[in-house]
Design a protein around this nucleic acid. Structure first.
Lengths: 239, 239
DNA sequence: CGTAGTGTTGACTGATATCAACGTTAGTGG
DNA sequence: CCACTAACGTTGATATCAGTCAACACTACG
């Protein structure tokens, strides 16, 4: 089954990102295709490019020596991968593809030039970075202070804000239980149980890769009030 | 008892921060004195300044409606408070004083000017931001994937790198069990028990505000190998 | 001296992890 | 189109880590 998503195309997100996506596209080189499970950036790399994600989903993560993994964030089409690289090309993290994907490389040096010459571009980049840093703070709160149920609801609220089309309450999310658990600091088994609770409460139905939002209010009820997914409604880079 | 710390003075950290501290000091206004438990920035504020911390300790945190608190980081003298404010003056977090403290306000607009005119200053700021973003990633790993003992050891390793004088293995740290627990995503009681284990293992003795490092290797043994406190030895902004 | 804040300890609870079995789905090649 | 397989998901039983509650001790400070 194929469902239509807000996140399906590069340009769908343009308006919400204040047209920074357009500017980034204009300085990008031809696309690179990635296969599912491919690794775009390896920890220890020193990439000279950032990327504009044209299609597919990526995720940024770090591995520990014993195999434990923390996923920092997921990327959907239209997003800049990865804002972290602006400050330093030295990578302590990795970036992988959840699906087949296409990325447009953007030379770091070119990006710097554009930032120097074009104040409005710099401002747009800075406000993107402001959203990202707030997002990282919220992720820390999730992992440090929220229960499993609350973390799950924050993730679902973010997914809904990011990829749910206005017309439909079902959408495809290429996340396995294991990916979700590594993002939320849980185990796959506990993710499964937590989703079962939410389904029995009539909040969502998440079967395999299809996520159906039954009652968004029941999700919001478990999301801290001062989180950005709520009122402010800045649907960019919230995940 | 008063112990001498690496973090005691503004200028002690100058070299390790690549002299950005000096440049920041040159554009700062006269100091503001803060009392213990004072709040420098309230969530919801829109401060027009950043601050150079001249003396004392600060901490950046966010509260939830029910009183839960996540502490993101601690600041010691010489540090820029808070790099997050560079991208946006809109604050979702708060900044409080752990001790009496003095901060030198730096106008955001002035900082922007300096960044535009002075490429080397911009580069120094960017490399500071690179260290900060890596730090935030590591904090996420701590909260999401490390055990209580490992989190404790990461904190202690960071404190040692940041404030332990080369000559002495004891130093003052103005952190209560509650502050530590809110930074590590634990409870004060569990922090107490975890420190007891480390003391019985002959790793550290942390009594009230005096932290004595007995065997730093035993601490490192519980810190993931790819964390920045280990090999790279960038003692800046690691906490 | 009180007193309030902080730290420690023990007993108990609870949330999440672990282990293991089984079921389901998607992909592969005949 | 089917059989096979591997990956993924669910469920139950049990274990463990960390949280909660409560009592008490210690320290700093007025």
């Amino acid at each position: 089954m194929k469902l239509k998503n807000k996140a399906d195309t590069l340009h769908a997100n343009r308006t919400v990102t204040n047209d920074i996506t357009g500017k980034l596209a204009s300085m990008a080189r031809p696309g690179i295709k990635l296969r599912t499970r491919a690794t775009l950036v390896h920890a220890g790399d020193r990439p000279s490019d950032l990327y504009l994600l044209k299609s597919g989903w990526l995720f940024r993560y770090q591995l520990l020596a014993d195999g434990r993994r923390q996923i920092f964030c997921f990327f959907t089409p239209g997003e800049l991968v990865a804002p972290n690289l602006i400050f330093s090309p030295v990578c302590h993290f990795s970036i992988g593809a959840l699906t087949t994907a296409e990325v447009l490389p953007i030379d770091r040096a070119l990006l710097f030039d554009a930032m120097e010459r074009d104040a409005s571009f710099r401002d747009m980049l800075f406000s993107l970075l402001a959203v990202r840093t707030r997002f990282m703070d919220e992720r820390m709160i999730e992992l440090g202070r929220l229960t499993a149920l609350e973390r799950m609801c924050v993730l679902i609220a973010r997914l809904a804000a990011k990829v749910m089309a206005p017309s439909d309450d079902r959408f495809e999310v290429p996340l396995t239980r294991e990916l979700v658990s590594d993002a939320l600091g849980l185990t796959p088994v506990h993710v499964s149980r937590t989703l079962k609770v939410l389904e029995q409460d009539g909040a969502v139905r998440w079967r395999r890769t299809v996520l159906e939002i039954v009652d968004l209010q029941k999700i919001y009820a478990n999301v801290p009030r001062n989180f950005a997914v709520h009122g402010g409604e800045q649907p960019t880079a919230l995940i």
